[in-house]
Amino acid sequence: MTHLHGALPPAFRMTGTSSFLDFLAAHDPSLLPGARPLPAGEVTAPHGTTIVALAFDGGVVMAGDRRATAGSMIASRTIEKVFPADEYSAVGIAGTAGLALELVRLFQLELEHYEKIEGSLLSLEGKANRLATMVRGSLGLAMQGLAVVPLFGGYDLDAGVGRIFSFDVTGGRYEERDHHAVGSGSVFARGSLKKLWRPGMAVPDAVRTAVHALVDAADDDSATGGPDTLRRIYPVVATVTAAGYLRVPDEQLAEVCREVDAARGRAEGAGDAP
C-alpha cells in the first residue's frame, strides 16, 4: 500500500490478466493467504461448521448454521457462513473461520474484478475452478490443521439449472448431484437430505428441507447450532435462481423453523410442539 499516494505502480498497468489474485501476486503477494510464511506450532482458532446445499426446480438453496466453536467452547452464536459470491452464485464455508472469511472476501472480489474488467460474467464452471485454485493455494495452511472447505452453488445461466460443487483441501473440485453438505455436522445433514430431497421441489419445500437437514445436524453434532428461537437467531438460508441471490428473511425462517419443530415433535410422539 506504500505506493498509493503517488502514481500507479507498474503492476497496476500490467496487461494480460483479468484476475485480482494474479494482480496481487505481482503487486503484493503478502496479501494472499497461501503466500504467507507459516509459524510452527498449533493454533486454536474458531471453527465454522455445517453447510448444506440442494438443487430444486430452477435453482439452488444454500444454508448454514450460525455457530463457531473453539475447542469445546462456543466462539460465536451469530457467525454467518453463507455468502453471495456474485449475483448468480453462493458460497458457504466450513473450517477455520478467519481464513474462510478471508477466502470468501477474496473470492467475491475475484468475481467482481473479472466482471468489471471483462464486462461479462464468468461461467459457473469458471467460478468453481477459480475457487478450487484458491483452496489449493491454502494447502500449506490445511496441513497445519487450518483447513477451509467451501461449498459452492449457483444458477447456470447457460443451462438454466442450479448446480452444486464441493471441494477438498487439495483443490479437487467435484460437481454434486442434487444435494450436498460439508463441515462437522455434514454426515447427519447428508442423511437427512437423502431422505427428504425430492426431484422437482418448489422453493418453500427446498428451504424447509435445508432447515430440516441443519436441525438434524445440530441434533447429533455438538459443533452445529440449531435455530435459536429464544434469541431469534436463525440459520442463514439463501436461494439462487434466475432472479439472482436472495436471502430468506428471518420472519419467514421463524415460520419454517416452527413447522420443522412441529413435524419433529409429532415424530417423537410428543404431539404438536408448543
Binding site: 498509493l4 500507479l8 497496476f12 496481487l24 496479501l31 472476501r105 472480489l109 474488467i117
Partner: peptide
Amino acid sequence: VAGVRYADLRGYSYDRSDVTARGLANAY
C-alpha cells in the same frame, strides 16, 4: 484497468467505503 485494480485493492485492504473518486483522481 489500473483504476479498477486500485479501487479493488484499496477496498480489500481497508473497507469498501474508503474507496473515493478523489483518491483515484489523484493517482491518475
